[in-house]
Structures are given as structure tokens and as C-alpha cells.
Design a protein around this nucleic acid. Structure first.
Lengths: 200, 200
DNA sequence: CTAAACCTTGCATAGTCTGCAAATTTTGCA
DNA sequence: TGCAAAATTTGCAGACTATGCAAGGTTTAG
């Protein structure tokens, strides 16, 4: 996991570009920012901007914290109740996101008004769901069940950020607890049919 | 709900444009199709194309069948178990989608490789989730629970289409049944923690 | 210290999308 | 039927996005 000097500098420049992009986007929306402006503010040529990101929307989204090996291992090899492991996974993921509150807020702002940015993030989420599904399949026999759980996890993250942006007095961790309570509640409603069917 | 002649023709032209767009996109991907080509095939000028859709990705997505008033009313005012009403809602929505299997297949193809198209669809889904959440709130006291159920519904549609595209011998309706079984299964897993906590 | 690998940059170019105004078509009504 | 008002289509100009390419500069490893 050690990065060469080159890689480290590249990461830093990429991060710098993201911050300048978001800062400019906060003023009049990302659509009214030109790649020329972003490049100028970032101290690079316009052509070089496209060496770092394929377009300005990708620059605004940047690179969200990836799932770590230990997070995935805990999910795959956990022994407790699966629901507990999922909550812990979410706790650690939200903790990672808490390191970048300012960026999340600005990204959220961009996502609200820019389709392309939404699509780029959605692509990242699709990949995350696939990772989660594969990990969960190690503990489940029902494939669609793993698919549904994975979707609930990434959606919980989305809902948590949304709630946190709306209720300014909540921390991200507190917002997750509220969301998770709702998820469990919803699960009880959905699970009840099954029980009824079994009884009948 | 009656459309004027003008509106009807406009809808038909819009639909025609969508079909031409998708047909062209199936060959080498939407990215390699130009708006000039789409307009030419559709028998309109390039400028007019932009009177119908803001960009070619929106043209490819088109206008998915909206939730009908009776669907929403059934959800809002239903008396049976909520889970049953949700499944019925999904059944009717999937039935509506079954009318356009060819288009769904092509749209799915575009979505796999085009970020902007993904984002446009995601925007539609955000609006649909909001509608569902508001309807469900008429029957629930827990707001986040409604949010989670709404997310599970739109995700079930997504998962159904995905499964149907992968398993060619399933109808859309049959794929939904498989997906719904997974959703219920997942719900049982998520709900069990709560029960354990209540017991302890 | 140097060759190979890698990065940055400018330039040319194809393509997207919008505003505007002229031309054309449709509509409602006398 | 015929015509004025309303709506739509279209061409054109122009700002912006994004890519390939090749020249020039920098970093790296041995």
C-alpha cells in the first residue's frame, strides 16, 4: 500500500483539483464553471486537467473512500448476527466519511443539480454494491437476498448523508443511527408477510 | 388526461426520436452516435432535436411509465398488510414495463456504459422514491422507515430488470417474484436484530 | 550521470448545446 | 373558407467540452 513519490504527488494534485472544482461550483453551480477556470485555479493547463479527470463532474466527485480490506473481511468472516455486522460496517464507513464533511456537503450540492455527476457517483455505488453482494454471498445461500442487503447498505449511506444535510444538529454518526432504525423498522414490515404466509 | 392533437403528435415524435436513438446506440454505443445522426434518422433538424430532449442521453432514456393515480391510491389507502400492498404495487409497475421490453433492453444497454444516462435515470428514480415515501407516510409514523421502504421498492425494480436481462428464460413478472423473495429474506435478516435487542 | 519512463503542454479538431430571429406550420374562430 | 395569433421548426453563430498527437520537460532507477 506504500505509494511512490510520484503517486503521492498525483493524488495530492487530484485532490487539489477536486477542491477547486467544488469551490467554484458552490458559487453558480457546476454547469457555469468552465474547465479553463478549474485548470487556471489549480495551476495547471486545461489539457492537463483532463489527465486527472475525464470531465469536470468526475473532478467534483473525486475519489470517495474505498471499502478497506478489513471492512470487507469483517463482513465476510463475521460470526455474530449478520445485521449487527452490517451496522458495524456502516459505522466504520460513516466514520471514514466524517473525515471529509466539507467535501461531502459540496458534493451533495453538486449532485442535486447535475445529472452527469449523479451518474458518475451511481457508477461508483454500483461497484460498491457488487463488492458487498459478493462478500455477503459467503454467508448466505439466497443470491437475491445478498443483492437486497447490499442495496440496503449503500442506500443507508445515501439516506444518512441526506438526513445529515437536512438536520444540521445531527452528526453523521447520529444520522446513521436514525436511518438504521428506519431500515430495521422497514424490514419488520417487509418480513411480516412472510411470517403470515408461513402461518396460513 | 385527454391530450390535444398537438400534444399527441409531440409525444409520438419524442417516442420516435427515442427509438432511433436507441437503435443507433446499439451499434457502437451511445457515445459514438452524434446528435446530427439522430436528428437525420428522425427526420428533423439537429436544432429541433434539442426541442424534444436536452441531450442524447435523455433521448435514450425517454419517459418511463409514471406511477398512475390508482397505483398511488392503492398504496396510500390500502387496508391489507403493507408488504402485500407493496408487492402489488410492484406487480402493476412491472406489468407496465412489460409493454416495452424491447426498449428496456436497449436502455439497459446504454445505462451500462454511459454515466450521464445513468444520472438522468437516477434523477427520475429520486423523484419516484419521493412520491412513494410521501404515500407511505400516510400509513407509517416512522419517517425513515418510509424512506427505506421506498428505496427497497425502486431498487426491486432495478434488480428485477437486471435479473431479467441476465436470465433470459425468466419473464419480468417471474424475475420480480425471485427478487421479492430475496427482499423478504433480507428483511428477515435485518429485522432479527431488533427482535434480539427487544428480548435482551 | 544517463537512458527510459513519465508528465505537461499547445494546437488542431470533432462534437455538444444555447440564444436568437426568420420562416413555416398549426390552431381557433369569424 | 380564410386569416390572424400562437406555436414550432430551422439555420446560424458562438461558447464550451473533450481527445489525439507530438514536442518538450521532469523524474526515476541503477
Amino acid at each position: 500500500m506504500t505509494l511512490s513519490l510520484r503517486e503521492k504527488r498525483r493524488q495530492e494534485t487530484g485532490f487539489q483539483i477536486q477542491k477547486e472544482t467544488l469551490k467554484l461550483a458552490m458559487e453558480n453551480g457546476l454547469d457555469s464553471v468552465t474547465t479553463d477556470e478549474i485548470a487556471a485555479k489549480s495551476g495547471i493547463s486545461t489539457r492537463t486537467f483532463f489527465n486527472y479527470y475525464p470531465n469536470k463532474e468526475a473532478a467534483a466527485i473525486g475519489h470517495p473512500p474505498a471499502f478497506t480490506d478489513s471492512q470487507m473481511a469483517a463482513l465476510r468472516d463475521g460470526t455474530g448476527p449478520l445485521a449487527t455486522d452490517l451496522k458495524q460496517f456502516l459505522d466504520s464507513q460513516i466514520a471514514a466519511l466524517s473525515e471529509r464533511e466539507d467535501i461531502i456537503r459540496m458534493v451533495g450540492h453538486v449532485l442535486r443539480s447535475n445529472d452527469k455527476a449523479r451518474g458518475i457517483l451511481e457508477g461508483i455505488l454500483v461497484a460498491e454494491r457488487r463488492l458487498l453482494k459478493d462478500a455477503l454471498l459467503a454467508r448466505l445461500d439466497n443470491r437475491q437476498s445478498a443483492v437486497s442487503l447490499a442495496a440496503n447498505v449503500t442506500d443507508a449511506i445515501r439516506a444518512t448523508i441526506f438526513l445529515w444535510q437536512k438536520e444540521k444538529d445531527l452528526t453523521l454518526a447520529a444520522a446513521l443511527d436514525v436511518v438504521w432504525d428506519g431500515v430495521t423498522n422497514a424490514a419488520e414490515i417487509l418480513a411480516s408477510t412472510h411470517k403470515n404466509e408461513a402461518r396460513s
